[in-house]
Amino acid sequence: MVVRRKSILRKMSKSKFFIIGSLLVGIIVLLAIFAPLIVRFDAEATDLRARLIKPEFFSKGLNGHILGTDSLGRDIFTRLLIGSRISLIIAVVGVVFPSIIGTILGMVSGYFGKIVDSVIMRFNDIQLSIPVMVFAITVMAIFGNSIRNLLIVLVVVGWVNYTRVMRESVMGIRDAEFIKASRVLGGSHLHIIFTQILPNIIPPLIILMSQQVGTVILTEANLSFLGLGVPLPKPSWGSMIADGREYIASAPWTVIAPGFALMITVLAFNFVGDGVRDVLDPKNID
């Protein structure tokens, strides 16, 4: 076990994408945590005298409008940082909850097979056949946009991915000798699923979770762009882009700043996801 852990660490340190991604994620998370200490403006208060001020960068230190202001005179740098907190919280919840539900369903489906499997997989097919965005905006429009509803949507559209992957992983080891042995020795299904099977399908689960973070952040941004995500006036990168869209010709920074933040964040998580896959995927063990 020790040897294996060492080799994982060594592999991680070799993957350039993983290192860059982890560093970026670290910086983003730190910025989000300490955002209230860094910013000098209110993220939600409007100031019409300060509309669409050009980025002053660091010419006035932290007290200037580093990335300019938006059409309502709100400081964009402040909204970016405060918005990152919302994005990250939504990303964490939007990955963790669907992964728990999806993993349990996937394990049950793969382990028991037959009718249980058929029922779960048909629900899976139904959910997959409804395009994510169409489903999401319908639900948000009907139930109203709040962060709670947004999270519910992310869970409902997210579990399918985990169920599929986990089911296949379980099917791969279901008939292994050690599972049969456990069964012969009188292990209950529940015992086998959670103590024999689960530890063996953790790597694909972690790979999938790390790859889903970016997708979840993008879905939230898309919904907020359409005005159906994080409710205003709370800052969200998606709604900031939507705000700036009208002024793209005269005040492009209103779009570029949140778009860039969004891209870097998703890219950072995808780098990590790729690195995790390279390290954990048994196909890549040489």
Binding site: G214, I241, G259, L262, M263, V266, L267, N270
Partner: peptide, 17 residues
């Protein structure tokens, strides 16, 4: 990786810009 990470909103608006 960049193609995967680009929000379509942001990429589309960049093209427009």
């Amino acid at each position: 990786l960049i193609g995967q990470s680009m929000s379509q909103v942001w990429f589309g608006l960049l093209l427009i810009l």
